Simulated scan of single mutants.
Amino acid sequence: MTRILAAAALLIAAGCANQGTTSAAEAAAPAAGSAVADLADAKGTRVGRAVGTEHGGMIHLSVEARSLPPGVHGIHVHTVGRCDAPDFTTAGSHWNPAGKQHGTENPQGPHAGDMPNLTIGADGRGSLTFMLPSGTLDGMLDADGAALVIHAAADDLKTDPSGNSGARLACGVFRRG
Rank of each mutant, 00 (worst) to 15 (best):
L5T: 14
L5H: 13
L11K: 12
A13E: 10
A13S: 07
G15W: 13
A17N: 13
A17K: 12
Q19H: 15
T21C: 12
A25F: 13
A27L: 15
A29C: 03
P30V: 02
A32M: 09
A32W: 07
G33E: 12
S34T: 14
A35Q: 11
A35L: 03
A35G: 07
D38Q: 11
L39D: 04
D41S: 05
K43C: 01
G44D: 06
G44K: 07
T45M: 08
R49C: 00
R49P: 00
V51M: 08
G52S: 08
T53D: 11
T53W: 06
G56T: 13
M58N: 14
H60Y: 12
L61K: 10
L61G: 13
S62Y: 03
E64N: 13
E64C: 05
A65W: 02
L68T: 11
L68P: 10
P70L: 03
V72D: 14
H73F: 08
H73I: 07
G74A: 10
I75A: 10
H76R: 11
H76F: 05
T79P: 03
V80T: 13
R82W: 10
R82V: 06
C83W: 04
D84Q: 13
D84G: 09
A85V: 02
P86W: 01
D87Y: 03
F88I: 04
F88Y: 12
F88E: 07
T89V: 09
T90R: 15
G92P: 04
G92T: 01
S93I: 05
S93M: 06
H94W: 07
W95S: 10
P97A: 11
P97L: 08
T104G: 14
T104Q: 11
N106Y: 01
P107C: 07
G109N: 09
G109P: 02
G109A: 09
P110V: 00
P110S: 01
A112P: 10
M115P: 04
M115N: 04
P116E: 09
L118G: 05
G121S: 12
A122K: 11
R125T: 11
L132E: 06
T136C: 07
D138L: 05
G139K: 05
G139W: 02
G139H: 07
M140W: 06
L148T: 02
L148V: 02
L148K: 03
A153R: 15
A154W: 10
D155H: 00
D156V: 03
K158Q: 09
K158D: 02
D160W: 01
P161A: 06
P161H: 03
S162W: 00
S162N: 06
G163T: 02
G163V: 00
N164P: 01
N164K: 12
S165A: 14
L169K: 03
A170P: 04
C171H: 04
R175V: 15
G177M: 08
G177R: 10
G177H: 09
